[in-house]
């Protein structure tokens, strides 16, 4: 089917070019002969030649129109098959994953647990040191790595159950690694009403984040749904790291991520 369309558009296209060339040549030849005052017989001959040319050009023009129609039909078939099936709203969503460092699942760097030991020495080994330790670890690693938590249990009196309870209770702690940039999409009342859900959905689609996860495969962006960013007049709003972008649409939301690039 595709090869038929290709050959067809090639043939019809060259036919169009050929017919246009014929018409142009005919015009050029005809306009070379001046039409000045001449005897009657000569004038009759010139008139007949003009009429003949008109009829000839008319036939060529019909052929040209038919060839152009054929060309367009075939070419449309070609273009239709090339059309990508992804939405074009935000552009390059399909190529997104390969942006950071080539791999779809970049390996995490080996953890340096010396920091945990320093902190335990500084903050203390009692149960009351639990939350400050977790905060320090989160500040350092930007999440709570399992290895670090295990080391805390080894070094202090805190039990794994307490750590699990504390770290899952508070919203400030997270157990999975974050992307390089955190995108906070406001889901407060004003933003919700003006379409925060659509914004989030569009961003998930754009970053190709699977359901149930919040970070894209390249670990560039982590999506976070937050309660209120405190600028309801700009709804719907999101924050990328320190930048705030307001009055978003699904299209401009994707644009807003590019400030980090």
């Amino acid at each position: 089917m595709r090869s038929i369309a290709r050959t067809g558009s090639l043939i019809a296209g060259s036919l169009v070019v050929l017919l246009v060339a014929i018409l142009l040549m005919d015009y050029a030849l005809a306009s070379r002969q001046p039409f000045a005052s001449r005897p009657a017989a000569e004038q009759k001959r010139v008139t007949a030649a003009r009429l003949a040319r008109k009829a000839r050009d008319n036939a060529v023009a019909w052929a040209l129109i038919a060839a152009a129609a054929a060309f367009l039909t075939f070419a449309k078939e070609l273009v239709k098959q090339e059309k990508p099936s992804m939405p074009v709203g935000c552009g390059r969503s399909a190529t997104r994953g390969s942006r950071a460092d080539g791999g779809v699942h970049p390996t995490l760097p080996e953890l340096d647990l010396a920091f945990v030991e320093q902190m335990v020495a500084k903050i203390g080994r009692g149960k009351e040191a639990g939350i400050p330790l977790l905060q320090a670890i989160q500040n350092h690693y930007r999440y709570l790595p399992d290895e670090a938590l295990r080391r805390v249990c080894e070094l202090t009196e805190i039990t794994p159950a307490e750590i699990a309870g504390t770290s899952s209770f508070y919203g400030q702690f997270r157990r999975s690694p974050v992307g390089e940039h955190i995108v906070r999409v406001c889901h407060g009342t004003a933003c919700h009403v003006s379409g925060a859900r659509q914004i989030t959905e569009e961003l998930r689609r754009y970053l190709a984040i699977p359901d149930g996860e919040d970070t894209d495969a390249a670990r560039m962006f982590t999506l976070d749904e937050v309660a209120c960013l405190g600028c309801c007049s700009l709804a719907p709003v999101l924050m990328v790291d320190g930048h705030t972008a307001g009055k978003l649409t699904p299209a401009t939301a994707c644009e807003a991520l590019k400030v980090t690039a």
């Binding site: 709203g89 699904p250 299209a251």
Partner: peptide, 18 residues
């Protein structure tokens, strides 16, 4: 669906903000 397929398909720029 907010998918933007219509906006991408419109050759005349007649779809703004969906």
């Amino acid at each position: 669906l907010d998918c933007g397929l219509c906006a991408g398909a419109c050759p005349y720029g007649a779809i703004e903000r969906m």
